[in-house]
């Protein structure tokens, strides 16, 4: 059978070679790097000039051009917060304070109106920071909600259980797009006149409610893996419900649920791109909009490769981190 293995290996290498050469030609050797759309159209290769020309809009959306350092700083700050929180030594109560301070700074940077920064309304926020903020707040608020839903679904109290089951099944049963539409179009109709909720906030709410339903089922899976003996021991020690849950059951359940949790996190991170259909300028929307300019139409491949790489970087970081967690 060795000759067969050799044959397979050689033919795979050959196919790879046949595919890689044109790809390298396109991406590097024949590529145009100058932001010159005429040269791009004349060339055979990729038009990275498009990215060079449009990267500011893609990353920061319609945020005032001369203020771009603000979302840039906010983005770096948010990434730094995530990296800091991923370290085991920072898993202390003061981490909450650091997040509070960090998010306050991001708020001040993005909105301004203080410390001599001009005010920027959040209709003008966009690009990467919007994606990151939607994902961060989405997960940070959906996760505790999902734990409550998962506990509720396992509750002995029929009303609580019924409500949780109803919520989870209802939200899981509709597409995220329809939730976003409902949040942006229908929700305002139900609010009393004079009351209006910001469009970004409405989208964020829809994302939180959606993620919570999915995460709740993942958490429930973890809870179901805990043997009855752990509950018996906690009961026998007279630990009351919330202490039993937070000190004994959840630490074990969430550890078991790390791989599917991160799977859901990654899915959710990419799902935030659906906000483009209600007119929010997240990273994918800014790519789409920047392709509308007549000079640059037709360079969609380059633009979407750029956006994909950005998404990939964050998702790869999440999955690498989860692999690290599982090994411990």
């Amino acid at each position: 059978m060795r000759w067969l293995n050799t044959l397979v290996t050689v033919s795979l290498l050959f196919l790879l070679w046949k595919a890689m050469v044109p790809l390298i030609d396109w991406a590097f050797l024949d590529a145009v790097w100058r932001p010159d759309s005429k040269a791009c159209r004349a060339a055979q290769g990729a038009c990275w000039g498009f990215i060079a020309e449009k990267h500011r809009f893609i990353l920061f959306g319609t945020y005032p051009y001369e203020q771009h350092w603000r979302p840039a700083t906010a983005t770096l700050l948010l990434i730094a917060l995530w990296i800091f929180s991923s370290l085991r030594i920072s898993w202390r109560w003061w981490l909450a304070i650091i997040w509070f301070l960090g998010l306050s700074m991001i708020g001040i940077l993005m909105w301004g109106g203080a410390f001599g920064l001009p005010y920027v309304e959040n209709e003008r926020w966009g690009g990467l920071i919007l994606t990151l903020l939607l994902a961060t707040f989405g997960l940070a608020l959906a996760f505790p909600l999902s734990i409550l839903l998962a506990l509720g679904r396992r509750s002995d109290m029929p009303v609580i259980r019924g409500l949780c089951v109803g919520y989870i099944e209802l939200i899981r049963g509709v597409p995220l797009i329809s939730l976003l539409f409902m949040a942006s179009v229908m929700l305002p109709l139900f609010l009393p006149s004079g009351v209006s909720i910001d469009k970004l906030l409405r989208a964020q709410l829809a994302l939180i409610l959606f993620a919570a339903a999915y995460l709740a089922e993942v958490v429930r899976g973890g809870l179901q893996a805990i043997p009855q003996g752990q509950y018996d021991a906690a009961h026998a020690l007279a630990l009351p419900f919330w202490r039993r849950t937070f000190l004994v059951i959840l630490p074990q359940a969430l550890r078991i649920a790390v791989p599917p949790l991160v799977n859901t996190f990654i899915g959710f991170f990419k799902d935030t791109s659906l906000v483009l259909i209600i007119g929010l300028f997240d990273l994918l929307s800014t790519v789409k909009v920047s392709l509308n300019e007549p000079a640059w139409t037709g360079f969609g491949v380059e633009a979407y490769i750029f956006a994909s790489l950005a998404y990939f970087a964050f998702c790869a970081a999440m999955s690498a981190y989860s692999r690290g967690l599982e090994r411990r």
Binding site: P227, G229, Q230, A233, L237, L239, R243
Partner: peptide, 23 residues
């Protein structure tokens, strides 16, 4: 219990102090 039912995510000392501390 027959199957011990210690809390596997806590050290021996933490297993012993959990209920006195929190109950």
């Amino acid at each position: 219990f027959q199957s011990f039912n210690l809390f596997p995510h806590l050290t021996v000392l933490e297993n012993l102090t959990l209920a006195p501390l929190w109950v």
